[in-house]
Design a binder for these strands. Structure first.
Lengths: 336, 336
DNA sequence: CACTTGTGTCGAAGCGCTTCGATTGGCGAA
DNA sequence: TTCGCCAATCGAAGCGCTTCGACACAAGTG
């Protein structure tokens, strides 16, 4: 194994100089720096992570809590995770994976063990016990999603309320007067997942403001549930011409179901979604959607955490404004 | 932070004794052990991971490479991952997450950095470059899946060939004479993913042996693709009465599609699948399936790795025999 | 020209843990 | 009773790195 003393010898400097070249914490002359960097490359030197963690106070490891709870869309969750991992790596950090089972215990343990510089917590819920835990920790953290009380924390997420509003307003502008929200699976609401509720709130508020008739239903993540729900919606609201889907798993089956029921999209029924762009664009009928920018959220979460690690002040709440892309699944309401 | 010397003082012993209590590498009297353990608990002591990694040669961290390639079923992949993480934790190890982007570079880097005791690599493909890399490493590894040449490696997976055979044989026993395999998305075959090909091989071999008419088609992971394929299968093989589905994402839509086409399951068409039990059991028509034991595979992979870390010999290949559960989606062929 | 101020580098002291060799005391064998 | 031996424990030497204070020298300052 190549160690720092090897590099130092090879470059004709002291180990501390090599360390300073690496960390940039003290000025190093241009020439020395170059020599050291050359030696590092030639010898293929990689600092020993454990030694670093011991001597410095940093381990260069982040923990990522990914609770794969029932009802969440796993592929979407993993987009966040992948984005976190790659961004972290760009910042020289590795990512330790925590899953639901480890829950609070896992959090505490990993933190106590000092193997982790900071943590990123996904799928935060309104009554989540983790925010309290995080507040008590001596290590910085960032939450993806919002708990009931984000005071003293750092949270980031898409502005789901605005996203819900944007969808309704888009439909309203097109002349639609009766709209429905197809939400996440019921478990998600039962658990009090903030983002789901925010969509509902935004949806309802905008509908009320625009004096649109509106209904809201959660929906299981299965094609069968989608079909059932499609029928139910039309029964409850025969004048329905606009649908907002906030449920990746049923987006396609739901459109299918409506078409099977004789409604053409967008001629008879306009559909918008809140979901990753890739999904919306990949469907047979590309769907007008507010993007769920998982990549951006993941990356920004890491960047916020890096800032906190550097002692830079960070905002408590970061809400990304919704960005809507029209793709042809929405059209002006046909005038009867 | 509580350190080993604090524990030692509290228990009235030397730090090395505490260390030996923890590692069990030297005999410690029953009484001392108890006192030390009590102190550890009372003080809430957690060994510093970095210091451990530095002093000992172990970091108690595993790397898990989860390449979320197109065409793979993310929820299923995550079942493996979660199982790996929880099993690793039971063995006192944390799990570092590697994603596709980091690929070989990430592997090498994490390993060089000595932050990792061993690695588990998922979604291995026939011509995967990683096995070669792993062979060259000085650290043990376990692969979930099989490369073209598993010599010198440790691989574990469901015996997909036998699984394919089991499905066909089950259908054959029920009197079916014409069967179809609905496979994974085409990308998966193009990439040469062993498990997908093995299913095909098992399926075909068993069909030939039993003199069944058989057809094989990959299928995109979308309801639309499922519908199209259902029609296509019936067109190509009007006598079709048995289907094997090896594609979690289209299992439900496919059954739907067949039913829409007027075939009742299992009265007119018997369906079996290779997928996690939970999925098979959760459908409206519970599906007879060979379980894809993600939990077991993940856990066994970790255990194999632990064995290698302890220097115990491990078999190169572990193939879990298929376990089939009848659930009512298969029935004897209706005699015309 | 003596004196401060910076700049770039070095040496040494740990970080918390494991591990190796040494030490102690108790016990059976001679 | 003495010796040797084993079980149980201790002390000290690092593991590879960061960081702090010291130092040497060059470049201003009055």
């Amino acid at each position: 194994m190549v160690k720092i003393t090897d590099v130092a010898r090879h470059a004709g400097v002291s180990p501390s100089t090599v360390s300073y070249v690496l960390s940039g914490k003290r000025p190093i002359s241009e020439e020395t720096r170059r020599r050291v960097e050359e030696s590092i490359r030639r010898l293929g030197y990689r600092p020993h992570a454990g030694a670093r963690a011991l001597a410095g106070r940093r381990s260069n490891v982040l923990a990522l809590a990914v609770p794969l709870r029932p009802g969440i869309d796993v592929p979407v969750a993993m987009r966040f995770a992948v984005s976190v991992v790659t961004t972290a790596r760009r910042h020289g950090h590795d990512v330790l994976l925590l899953t639901q089972e480890e829950g609070e215990e896992g959090l505490r343990q990993v933190v106590d063990t000092v193997s982790v510089d900071g943590l990123i917590v996904m799928d935060v819920q309104l009554d989540d016990p983790r925010p309290a835990l995080l507040r008590g920790l001596d290590r910085p953290s960032v939450m993806i999603g919002f708990p009931a009380d984000p005071k003293g924390l750092t949270c980031i997420d898409l502005d789901f309320k605005a996203a819900g509003e944007a969808c309704v307003e888009h439909l309203a502008r097109l002349g639609h007067r009766a709209v429905a929200l197809v939400g996440s699976p019921p478990e998600v609401y039962v658990r009090g997942t903030a983002f789901a509720q925010r969509v509902v709130r935004g949806f309802t508020a905008a509908a009320d403001r625009g004096r649109l008739a509106s209904i809201v239903h959660p929906c299981e993540a299965s094609p069968a549930a989608a079909r059932t729900l499609a029928e139910q919606l039309l029964r409850e609201q025969p004048a329905l011409t606009g649908v907002v889907v906030h449920n990746e798993a049923v987006l396609e089956p739901l459109i299918d179901a409506f078409e099977k029921l004789g409604l053409r999209v967008p001629a008879d029924l306009s559909v918008t979604a809140i979901c990753p762009d890739e999904l919306a664009a990949s469907l047979r009928t590309p769907v007008t959607s507010v993007t769920l920018p998982a990549d951006e959220v993941g990356a920004r979460a890491v960047e916020l955490l890096m800032k906190k690690l550097n002692g830079t002040a960070t905002p408590e709440a970061t809400l990304l404004p919704p960005r809507m892309t029209e793709r042809g699944s929405t059209a002006p309401r046909a005038v009867a």
